[in-house]
Design a protein around this nucleic acid. Structure first.
Length: 327
DNA sequence: AACTCTAGCAACCGCCTTTCA
DNA sequence: CTGAAAGGCGGTTGCTAGAGT
């Protein structure tokens, strides 16, 4: 942190207020009050104007940051709850360091806050857990190391495997509404399947001991996907693929047909952005195999799939913002 | 009590993207 | 179409407070 009176310098940033020396460093309570009052009176607008009109000797950028990270009334304060922590990990495993996108899924939390939390707390724990796992002979065949997602997957001491409810909620809510569900959701799940299946922290582990979670409340479906394991060739064995009987689930870019009685489920998506096609076939023994047709490979094992190649909007459309969560 | 270490976090920096004249 | 300004974002810095010695 910087002392409020620490620096006064000419602005050389992208937000300019000519001929004014702009303050930097910590915000004083007076400055906070000015900005807060102005924002509450006038709402958001051009930050340079806000800075000027509020009588602040700050650049617009600085005002924006202060508002977003500290003054916004809807900000949540205090430590991250375990649920939030899990969600952050979950989202980070999907999105990487896209803090703003992660933050957009955690109401009341800022990207800066999450970033700091990740860098200071989670990374550290990750390191510890990684050291532990490296010392374990059972992990000798594991090629985790460079991928943090994968590190997390292996971090059994880090993620509680027994706290299933939250993940379940994620899964349920992401598929609760037929309008919010998309093919990318399947893709997300598939990604998360990667890693040591005995450590499924980010998959809904409830599925491992809750074979059928299948209910309806009139308008919503619970649609849980359980994973028994995975194979490097991209074929996943799923003990349970659950949908409403004879449901025709709208998956955004495609349609999933679930016909439990016929022991058959098919999921065919032709999504330009994700280029992701799956066929699901239910085995006689009740397992459903997801056979990759296009665009999904074992990227942990070498063929990396770059995030930038995805349709992140589509991807995110499938991740719930969980507004009902009250951490 | 004095000093050192370190975790946590506010805020800056610089780059990239978007908007607008 | 182009360039400047503004906005947005991720990475990084450096201060503070508290714990440890």
């Amino acid at each position: 942190m910087r002392k409020p009176e620490q620096m006064m310098n000419t602005n050389k940033g992208s937000s300019t207020i000519p001929n004014l020396k702009l303050r930097k460093g910590l915000w004083s309570p007076e400055e906070d009050e000015k900005l807060m009052n102005y924002m509450l009176r006038n709402g958001q607008g051009c930050w340079t104007d806000i800075a000027r009109n509020a009588g602040l000797q700050r650049c617009g950028k600085s005002c924006r940051l202060r508002w977003i990270n500290y003054l916004r009334p809807d900000l949540k304060r205090g430590a991250f709850s375990p649920q939030e922590e899990q969600l952050i990990i979950h989202l980070h495993s999907i999105l990487g360091n896209r803090w703003s996108q992660i933050a957009s899924r955690l109401p009341g939390r800022t990207d800066n806050e999450i970033k700091n939390f990740w860098n200071s707390t989670i990374k550290k724990r990750l390191k510890v857990s990684n050291n532990v796992s490296k010392s374990s002979p059972n992990d000798s065949t594991d090629e985790t190391s460079s991928n943090p997602c994968r590190d997390i997957m292996g971090a059994t001491m880090f993620i509680s495997m027994h706290d299933h409810e939250f993940t379940a909620m994620c899964m349920e809510s992401s598929l609760t509404s037929t309008t919010t569900t998309s093919s990318s959701s399947m893709h997300n799940n598939s990604m998360l399947v990667q890693g040591h299946h005995e450590h499924f922290g980010l998959l809904p582990p409830l599925l491992q001991n809750n074979p059928i979670n299948h209910e309806t409340n009139g308008t919503s479906n619970l649609f849980n996907v359980g994973m028994e394991g995975y194979e490097d060739c991209g074929v996943l064995e799923m003990p349970y693929m659950i949908g409403m009987e004879n449901d025709n689930i709208n998956l955004g870019g495609g349609v999933m047909d679930v016909d439990v009685n016929a022991n058959h489920a098919s999921y065919i998506v032709d999504n330009k952005s994700t280029n992701f096609n799956h066929h699901l076939n239910k085995d006689i023994d009740g397992k459903v195999k997801v056979e990759e047709v296009v665009g999904f490979e074992n990227h942990w094992a070498g063929e990396s799939l770059k995030m930038g190649e995805w349709d992140l909007e589509g991807l995110f459309a499938s991740i719930p913002s969980l507004p009902y969560l009250d951490f």
